[in-house]
Write a protein that binds this DNA or RNA. Sequence first.
DNA 1: CAGGCATTGTAACAACTGTTTGTTAGGACC
DNA 2: GGTCCTAACAAACAGTTGTTACAATGCCTG
Lengths: 197, 197
Amino acid sequence: MTENTRVREEGLHRSDNRRQELMAAAAHLFNQRGYDATSMRDIAREAGMLAGSMYYHFSSKEDLIVATYEEGKRLISTAVLEATDGVEDPWERLTQAAIAHMNTLFGGNNFSILLCADISRTAPTLRSRLIEIRDSYDKLFMDLIEDLPLPDNIDKGLLRLSLLGSLNWSTSWYRPGGQTPAQIGAFFVRVMRDGLA
Amino acid sequence: MTENTRVREEGLHRSDNRRQELMAAAAHLFNQRGYDATSMRDIAREAGMLAGSMYYHFSSKEDLIVATYEEGKRLISTAVLEATDGVEDPWERLTQAAIAHMNTLFGGNNFSILLCADISRTAPTLRSRLIEIRDSYDKLFMDLIEDLPLPDNIDKGLLRLSLLGSLNWSTSWYRPGGQTPAQIGAFFVRVMRDGLA
DNA sequence: CAGGCATTGTAACAACTGTTTGTTAGGACC
DNA sequence: GGTCCTAACAAACAGTTGTTACAATGCCTG
């Protein structure tokens, strides 16, 4: 079986390989320097091609950004859904979700961390596209928190933002060596549930 | 008394006014679009001068960024110190600090919010300068949390990062109209102390 | 009124930006 | 064997970037 027949059977073009390589290079650099400080030439160089050639795979820089962002959402969504699948207790579900969230962020994939970057300062047209993707991930946590047995006077929206704030902020300080990502995620949920006093 | 004599008596040059105007314009734009997407020409235009003229007041863009960042730290540090001054109970001190933190962030000054932006993606030379400034503010919260009466098995460093994560992340979602900044800050501390279950 | 200093404007610099164009090599298909 | 598609290169585009050197302005002091 030639490469090409296999490619056709799986519904892939050969270029999908290079496309993935470009996205990986882009995600890597976006994480390191941010969107603005990463030029198309930087990405192309890391993928071993010239800047102009990228426009065969992506019609604009914005589209490339959105593609990496969406891939990040896909990966982390899958991880969280798998981690909570079959778990009954609402607090345990949230704990497992936080652990999966953190494990995915720091598990070596460069895509999911992009979801934790603050996008409130990106250009409006790009921002609205990213917000839409992010919201569809946040909804997972909305549902998890909605299911918690809580007093009526607790603002569940604020609770979600508090937890996601703690979790996402970790991307700005986490370094390997101390507590593991899973321990950190579990800790944040435990404090929120049990308190300290 | 002419403007100039007053200026001299206070040990100020006339340029200090324009310098402040430039910093205000810069902080405004930095908040809106970020450092990279804000050009020196944008800042100069907003302050009513030309790009080249700014180099009389600031010797580089990086210096201007650092100056606005430092001004933000000065303002929010002062607010937190005043808010906790004289308060005895450790938890109440932390609560008042969180309230002052939030009130300063959303109280209309464009400088302090800059401290809450993730700087892990900025250029290394700039980043190290900003980190130093930020750490000196974070130390305030380190001390506040150090004074809490907590069980020994609680990681206080992680606790501080959790709270600052919740608080700082609010800059990416807060809009006037819902709960006030003070309510949000107090809520985060209360959940951390009392828990939910 | 003259001189000097503080402050701004003017104009240009080299480097870099995202993107487009024309072209080319190689393989697949009829 | 001719034709088309894929994928990439090479070179240029117009615009923007931070920064600089120099000239002009205007106020304050002597």
